[in-house]
Amino acid sequence: MKRLGSTARSWRYVLLAFMLAPLLLALALDRAHARDSAAFDYGLVPRQIADGVYVLEGRKEDFSTANGGDIANTGFIVGTAGVIVIDTGSSRRYGEQMRVAIARITPLPVVLTINTHHHPDHFLGNQAFPPDTLAALPATIAGIEAEGGAFNDNLYRLVGDWMRDTEVVVPRRRLAAGRQLVAGRDIELLALGGHTAADLVVIDHVSGTVFAADLVFNGRAPTTPHADIPRWMEAIAQLERLPARRWVPGHGAVHEDTEPLRQTRAYLDWLSRTLQAAAESGLDMAEAMTLPVAAEFRTLALVEHEYRRSVVHLFPAAERAALGSR
């Protein structure tokens, strides 16, 4: 891509800043967290949820040019010797702005950058982090290698120029389950799956905080493009046994008790039973899409949209079973 000469560029920026100043000021006064799409500013403000534990909560929305793809939760844990980053957001800009946000809180270096799974809202900010800190479960690495390019292309289509210069960076450090000191912090990794082939859960034992990745949604309908529902429900059952003091879901608000786990499991259970019943009663896929969402889930953000997507993901298997076709 051609770049402007530095003089021309800086003049343009001065001019731009001059023109945008009143707007920025108005927005800043209006909302502390304003995402300013003109300046491609996600307005990231880390919220401390425990000693040394921070969350950047995404919106309970689908990808759009208005939100720039800031739809998932990311977070970081500040240890004595460095920072552990959990997911990098949906774009290069997000990753860069996340690093700036971290630097405002601690001068310590990022020593470990985790991608919890291979969905684009969780790893496309990787470019902003030191390459040798990028780490994930082996199946997540394989997923990013196989599908990262297509995800990236699709996000340019969905959120537009927020994605500028975003490229896929595949993490090279292969993580395994286990408990160890990371940056002086007592961290345990759980290698689970079900939302995707590999979903990594990060436990900070000192604070009792569980970063549950997209195995847990809170107030937002779960997404299923790579889901294995029985495995996912097993993973949630395993999480429920943890002595956690607070839960950071992949999407939706941080919660002190296991209500988001119950909610996610109840929705997945309803979803799979609904689609099996639809296939078993001879409905066509287009008809299955028009079935109503059960009343108790109608308050979940995006539930109508996610239900219809899930029909496409999950109905074919239910249908093959009903038709006795392998």
Binding site: R273, T274, A277, S281, G282, L283, P292
Partner: peptide
């Protein structure tokens, strides 16, 4: 292709839903 009411009843019964709620969806 609208499923006739018996089909809806099957699905609805299986889901524990009121059929009346299901009717407008097609």
């Amino acid at each position: 292709m609208k499923p006739a009411h018996p089909a809806r009843r099957t699905v609805c019964a299986a889901l524990g839903l009121a059929c009346a709620a299901a009717l407008p969806f097609v």
